[in-house]
Write a protein that binds this DNA or RNA. Structure first.
Lengths: 246, 246
DNA sequence: CGTGGTCTTGACACGATTCAAGCCCCGTGG
DNA sequence: CCACGGGGCTTGAATCGTGTCAAGACCACG
């Protein structure tokens, strides 16, 4: 439970200044936000928010990775999303959390008390606009994941996940050829991947072994994957061959 | 391909006036919208939008039911959502459609050309605010569905779907006791349910038979279901016993 | 009365889970 | 320095749930 609270740097130099909920704000609006913000850190493994908690704050992820997940009474859990720097936590107008948020690595958040933030959303359109954009992007991501969960095989799920990791770590849209031969670190354990993909950890492990045996990937230790041919991986993921690899 | 276009009634008397994207608008703002809107109808089964289509419009569903879905190259398809009256189609800033939209019944839409609509979103905050609320609601719905797709058994999926239908047709939050003994019509075919639930139509059919054999439901024809004990159905759906049946 | 669409049911196959054992790596303490 | 322990990971064998393929029932409609 060691969490630090610190009053903080100027927003100007913030690493997520240009992508977070504040990205459209001008200098004036930024000042408003600066007045009500504070940073807070969590250690890897800590639960940041429990389902059902009172939500008195909203926040942006500044550094680290967190997960959104939901757990059934009997322990089955489904991860609903991964939160990376600049992603937003909480929802204006919502009083209690619907999902668990857990720090997957050490995490620091830029927090705002909910009520003042809501007031700001009303008065400064740029925040609301950016929040809308981000929400719609998340909605698209959730829907893509629904196809994966509902219809893809275990092998396709793993391949899809790997393309996701590649796109996230290399950043933005990439040409298939350009990124073949690269290695990426997996940000999640086998168990966490299983929860993300709607599988068991044993199935995840087996599919990694099979993809390796088939030459689609090679493993450099259990948490680092080399992808000799990205286009091959892409097609293993069950994606349209011609689809833009957004 | 018989679709009608008609210039139309005043927004004042619109059946979705108080729930759609325009619900927060005042009289002035409504006038602005009225100037650029037009109605358009589709017959059951017609595809309203194909994935990849140019999206020159956005729209609200006025009457009828439509589905959002995504199909893989080999034909596997996953339904991503159901669109009911007042639900919104399209996204400001997006040029091409990511998903197929299909009329599940006869449907009429209230359409706006995208560019003028986007301009309006910028200038009239009430539209943007409402759009944000609606998007966040859809995001929550999508996430709940992810748990279903990733972790629930076929039986739980069917039971969950039935509770969804009950809640939608009886309207809003309901007390468990109050709605036991009611019958509801299923708005989808077995195949459409299968696509919604990530199952095959045979599995859907079998689970209906089993739930009937176990006394959880009874069938009045294949498209009408009677639920003698809603609390029982609710627990079959794998939901927390104490959770508010929102 | 025939036709096509929707739904049900059965037999079988297959993919994923479950249960179990054991490996590897790393940090801790004797 | 090495033994120990634990977490993360892999692998195997058996089981179970769902998909696949196929046949036939039901029903509305022409």
């Amino acid at each position: 439970m060691s969490l630090t609270s610190l009053k903080q740097d100027r927003c100007e130099s913030c690493p997520i200044r240009h992508r977070a909920v504040c990205s459209k704000c001008n200098a004036d609006e930024l000042l408003q936000l600066e007045k009500i913000k504070y940073y807070r850190s969590y250690e890897a493994g800590q639960t940041i928010i429990w389902r059902g908690d009172q939500m008195d704050i909203v926040a942006s992820v500044v550094t680290g990775t967190a997960t959104i997940s939901q757990t059934m009474e009997d322990g089955r859990t489904q991860m609903l999303g991964i939160l990376l720097p600049s992603d937003f936590i909480g929802r204006p107008g919502r009083e209690t959390a619907l999902y668990d948020i857990v720090a997957a690595s050490d995490v620091t958040l830029c927090c705002f008390r909910r009520l003042p933030f809501e007031a700001l959303v009303e008065t400064t359109p740029h925040i609301g606009q950016r929040l809308l954009e981000m929400s719609l992007d998340e909605l698209d991501a959730a829907r893509d994941w629904m196809l994966l969960l509902g219809r893809k095989t275990a092998r396709e799920k793993i391949a899809s996940f790997l393309t996701l990791v590649v796109r996230r770590t290399t950043g933005a849209p990439v040409l298939p050829g350009a990124i073949s031969g690269q290695s990426v670190d997996l940000p999640l354990t086998r168990e966490a991947m299983a929860n993300y993909l709607g599988l068991t950890l044993e199935t995840v492990s087996r599919q990694f072994s099979k993809l390796k045996a088939d030459g689609v990937i090679s493993l450099e230790g259990s948490r680092r994957v080399k992808i000799p041919d990205f286009a091959r991986l892409w097609s293993e993921a069950g994606n349209d061959a011609e689809a833009e690899m957004s």
